[in-house]
Computed example of a mutant assay.
Amino acid sequence: MSMICSFLQVVGGLGLSWQMSFGILVLLYFYSHYFFASGAAHIGAMFTAFLSGALVLSFLSNLMGGITHYGIGSAPVFYGAGYVPLAKWWGYGFLISVVNIIIWLGVGGIWWKAIGLW
């Protein structure tokens, strides 16, 4: 997993387009099979790391809807009621996003470690 994270940091620092980065990741996954004795070993080692990254992105996608007044379908209705000014909405959204990230990645990471997922 740490090798994948290191690779993602390098790819991210190159300033490549998402298509090029995705292509590199696909080729990395495909051709890394040369380093494994079997398909099961390759899939067991690499797929989990790639899937974990995708799951984290999907979890965070659920949390980011409330940080702006247009983030999810119901947000404009709540904002349109006029109870919260725009600047406060964005400020509260940022504050809650920090709390959510601490809970999901911090406390959640500790929990995953406790139950043996990480």
Rank of each mutant, 00 (worst) to 15 (best):
I72E: 10
Y34I: 14
A41I: 08
G109N: 06
G116V: 12
V98K: 06
S61M: 06
W104A: 14
S74W: 06
I115G: 06
Q9Y: 10
W104C: 08
F47H: 14
G39Y: 04
G116C: 06
W118M: 09
S2Q: 11
Y83A: 05
A87F: 04
F50L: 15
G82K: 07
H33I: 07
F78W: 05
A75S: 12
I67E: 08
H69D: 12
P85H: 02
Y31I: 10
L117H: 09
Q9W: 10
I24T: 07
S38W: 02
I103H: 00
T68P: 04
S38K: 02
G12I: 01
Y29T: 09
I96P: 03
S21E: 14
L27A: 15
G12F: 04
V84P: 05
I102G: 06
A87S: 10
F22H: 08
S32C: 13
V10E: 13
A41V: 10
M46E: 10
W112L: 15
Y29N: 05
G106K: 00
I101G: 03
S38G: 14
G91W: 13
T68I: 00
G80D: 04
I96A: 14
I96L: 15
F59R: 07
Y92V: 13
V98L: 14
A40E: 09
M1Q: 05
I103G: 00
L14Y: 00
S32Y: 06
Y83I: 00
S2E: 12
S6V: 03
F59P: 02
I72S: 07
S61N: 14
I24F: 13
M3R: 11
A114F: 04
G106R: 00
M3G: 02
G53N: 08
A45R: 09
A41N: 13
I103A: 05
S21Q: 14
S17R: 12
F22M: 15
W18D: 09
S52A: 12
L28W: 15
F22Q: 11
F50H: 13
F35Y: 11
G23C: 06
Y79A: 14
I4K: 05
F59D: 05
G82Y: 02
S97E: 09
L27V: 11
A81N: 08
L55I: 15
N62M: 14
V107G: 03
I103D: 01
G15E: 04
G73Q: 09
M20H: 11
A114V: 11
G13V: 09
L8E: 05
G93N: 09
M64C: 04
A41F: 04
S17L: 04
S58A: 13
I115D: 02
V107E: 02
S52E: 08
H33C: 03
V98A: 06
G91C: 09
M20E: 11
S2C: 01
W118K: 06
W111A: 15
Y79H: 11
P85E: 01
G73V: 00
L8N: 07
A49P: 02
A75G: 01
I110L: 15
C5Y: 11
S74P: 01
I103S: 01
A81S: 08
G53P: 01
H69A: 10
W111P: 00
W118Y: 07
L60M: 12
